[in-house]
Protein backbone atom coordinates (compact mmCIF):
# COMPACT_ATOMS: atom_id res chain seq x y z
CA UNK A 1 0.00 0.00 0.00
CA UNK A 2 1.44 3.42 -0.94
CA UNK A 3 0.47 7.02 -0.31
CA UNK A 4 0.97 9.41 -3.19
CA UNK A 5 1.33 13.04 -2.11
CA UNK A 6 0.74 15.01 -5.30
CA UNK A 7 1.31 18.76 -5.33
CA UNK A 8 -0.46 20.23 -8.33
CA UNK A 9 -0.74 23.77 -9.65
CA UNK A 10 -4.24 25.16 -9.20
CA UNK A 11 -4.93 25.64 -12.89
CA UNK A 12 -4.64 21.87 -13.55
CA UNK A 13 -6.18 20.48 -10.40
CA UNK A 14 -9.84 20.34 -11.45
CA UNK A 15 -9.03 18.32 -14.57
CA UNK A 16 -6.80 15.99 -12.53
CA UNK A 17 -9.49 15.35 -9.92
CA UNK A 18 -12.12 14.75 -12.61
CA UNK A 19 -9.98 12.13 -14.35
CA UNK A 20 -9.13 10.47 -11.04
CA UNK A 21 -12.82 10.31 -10.17
CA UNK A 22 -13.67 8.88 -13.60
CA UNK A 23 -11.22 6.08 -12.88
CA UNK A 24 -12.65 5.38 -9.40
CA UNK A 25 -9.52 6.62 -7.63
CA UNK A 26 -10.22 8.25 -4.33
CA UNK A 27 -8.31 11.38 -3.33
CA UNK A 28 -8.23 13.87 -0.48
CA UNK A 29 -7.65 17.47 -1.48
CA UNK A 30 -5.72 19.96 0.69
CA UNK A 31 -5.31 23.56 -0.36
CA UNK A 32 -1.71 24.69 -0.10
CA UNK A 33 0.68 27.43 -1.19
CA UNK A 34 3.85 27.07 -3.24
CA UNK A 35 7.15 28.35 -1.94
CA UNK A 36 8.53 29.69 -5.21
CA UNK A 37 5.48 30.87 -7.00
CA UNK A 38 3.81 32.00 -3.76
CA UNK A 39 0.66 31.08 -5.67
CA UNK A 40 -1.98 28.71 -4.52
CA UNK A 41 -1.60 25.05 -5.38
CA UNK A 42 -3.30 21.89 -4.21
CA UNK A 43 -1.95 18.86 -2.38
CA UNK A 44 -3.72 15.57 -3.13
CA UNK A 45 -3.41 12.52 -0.88
CA UNK A 46 -4.00 9.35 -2.91
CA UNK A 47 -3.80 5.95 -1.27
CA UNK A 48 -3.23 3.19 -3.80
CA UNK A 49 -1.81 -0.27 -4.30
CA UNK A 50 1.68 -0.56 -5.75
CA UNK A 51 0.50 -1.73 -9.16
CA UNK A 52 -1.79 1.26 -9.72
CA UNK A 53 0.88 3.90 -9.23
CA UNK A 54 1.98 4.01 -12.86
CA UNK A 55 -1.56 4.36 -14.16
CA UNK A 56 -2.15 7.26 -11.76
CA UNK A 57 1.09 8.94 -12.83
CA UNK A 58 -0.03 8.65 -16.47
CA UNK A 59 -3.47 10.06 -15.68
CA UNK A 60 -1.97 13.05 -13.92
CA UNK A 61 0.71 13.69 -16.52
CA UNK A 62 -1.91 13.97 -19.26
CA UNK A 63 -3.58 16.82 -17.40
CA UNK A 64 -0.61 18.91 -16.27
CA UNK A 65 2.43 20.58 -17.84
CA UNK A 66 5.39 22.34 -16.25
CA UNK A 67 6.22 25.97 -16.83
CA UNK A 68 9.32 28.14 -16.56
CA UNK A 69 9.37 31.19 -14.29
CA UNK A 70 11.96 33.92 -13.84
CA UNK A 71 13.46 33.94 -10.37
CA UNK A 72 15.82 36.90 -10.29
CA UNK A 73 18.41 36.09 -12.94
CA UNK A 74 18.02 32.38 -13.60
CA UNK A 75 14.96 30.47 -14.76
CA UNK A 76 13.29 27.92 -12.54
CA UNK A 77 11.20 25.10 -13.93
CA UNK A 78 8.14 24.59 -11.74
CA UNK A 79 6.56 21.23 -12.41
CA UNK A 80 2.87 21.09 -13.24
CA UNK A 81 2.74 18.28 -10.71
CA UNK A 82 5.14 16.99 -8.08
CA UNK A 83 4.55 13.47 -6.74
CA UNK A 84 6.05 11.82 -3.67
CA UNK A 85 5.36 8.10 -3.26
CA UNK A 86 5.56 7.03 0.36
CA UNK A 87 5.34 3.52 1.77
CA UNK A 88 2.43 2.94 4.13
CA UNK A 89 2.87 0.83 7.25
CA UNK A 90 -0.84 -0.01 7.58
CA UNK A 91 -4.13 1.12 6.06
CA UNK A 92 -7.36 0.81 8.00
CA UNK A 93 -10.76 1.59 6.56
CA UNK A 94 -13.44 2.00 9.27
Amino acid sequence: MKLIIAIIQDEHVNKVIRTLMDNKIRTTRLSSTGGFLKSGNTTLLIGTEEKEIDTIVDLISHQTKSKKIKDGQEEVVVGGANLFVIDIFDHIKL
Binding site: I53, K65, S66, A81, N82, L83, V85, D87
Partner: peptide, 10 residues
Protein backbone atom coordinates in the same frame (compact mmCIF):
# COMPACT_ATOMS: atom_id res chain seq x y z
CA UNK B 1 11.31 12.95 8.00
CA UNK B 2 9.71 10.36 5.72
CA UNK B 3 11.33 8.03 3.26
CA UNK B 4 10.21 8.70 -0.31
CA UNK B 5 10.23 5.67 -2.61
CA UNK B 6 9.72 7.53 -5.83
CA UNK B 7 9.68 11.22 -6.69
CA UNK B 8 8.08 12.10 -10.03
CA UNK B 9 8.05 15.61 -11.43
CA UNK B 10 5.79 16.14 -14.45
Amino acid sequence: ILDVERHIRI
